[in-house]
């Protein structure tokens, strides 16, 4: 019923899917055939079809992360035909629809590949490094209660909008997966800029950027070499400008603070 092209025919596809039993096991690409795929299906619904099929055959289904299937929770993370979240710009894997593919296509499906994101199983990876970076300072240190009335902190609309644009990051890790250095700069910079722009973030501005960058390095993410594939592949359009802001914030903090050795 949905879709502007009700005559679009179901598709038969070949999938090459990364299978890996656990973190330490060796993995490999395994070929699967899926048939009768409706163009209106989402990519994950196509994988659901594959998994039901495997289960009926008594084989282990392909493990993959997903949850909201609305493009906001940041769980889904497939590297499809060599691109994070597949061929459609500005789209998470769960919002990618099969109408973007053709009958007879071969589709390669891999997990995010980065040393800091070890594979749990098949297509599921461990992104807890992102949490640890936020723990290093991605917050404003206020306890519950004892805060001023909301309208006592006015914020110019233009600043609030820019902060929002940075805050919209869903933490999926596509930036890391797309980067040849597996750098997490876009992720880190989104949080640093959001809080550096807002008045609420000023008090901890310097320590925040220093601590978050230090943690990023500790997690084993690579350095940024200004290629920009992170922003190009980001499903929610986090701008490369944030990395420039991060660099400036970091430099300013290092030049003027004694907060960190």
């Amino acid at each position: 019923m949905a879709g502007s092209n009700p005559n679009a025919k179901p598709m038969d596809l070949t999938l090459k899917v990364w299978r890996q039993r656990n973190r330490t096991a060796d993995g490999q690409l395994v070929d699967y055939q899926v048939k009768n795929i409706s163009p209106d299906m989402s990519f994950l619904e196509m994988l659901d079809v594959l998994n039901e099929d495997l289960l009926h055959k008594g084989e282990d289904p392909v493990a993959f992360d997903h949850d909201c299937r609305e493009g906001i929770c940041g769980s889904c993370n497939l590297y499809i035909n060599g691109r994070a979240h597949g061929p459609e710009p500005g789209t998470t894997t769960c919002q990618l629809h099969m109408r973007k593919f053709k009958d007879g296509d071969t589709i390669v499906v891999e997990p995010w590949r980065a040393a800091a994101f070890p594979v749990n199983r098949d297509l599921s990876v461990d992104r807890s490094a992102f949490d640890r970076i936020i723990q290093a300072g991605g917050y404003v240190s206020v306890n519950t209660g004892g805060v001023p009335d909301a309208n006592e902190i006015p914020v110019p609309k233009s600043i609030a909008d820019r902060a929002f644009d940075a805050a919209t990051c869903i933490g999926c890790g596509a930036c890391v997966a797309s980067c040849k250095n597996a750098s997490a700069m876009l992720f880190v910079s989104a949080k640093v800029s959001q809080l550096a722009l807002l008045p609420q973030g000023q008090v901890e501005r310097k320590t925040r950027v220093e601590n978050m960058v230090a943690q990023m390095d500790k997690e084993g993410f690579g350095a940024c070499t200004n290629i920009g594939s992170c922003a190009a592949e980001c499903p929610v359009g986090i701008s490369l400008e944030n990395i420039a802001i991060l660099n400036r914030e970091f430099l300013a903090a290092k030049a003027t603070s004694n907060n960190l050795a």
Binding site: Y139, P148, A150, I153, K157, A160, L198
Partner: peptide, 12 residues
């Protein structure tokens, strides 16, 4: 109040 203090970017 709490959310604004945390830096939640509400519409303005």
């Amino acid at each position: 109040d709490q959310c604004v203090a945390q830096g939640v970017p509400f519409a303005r």
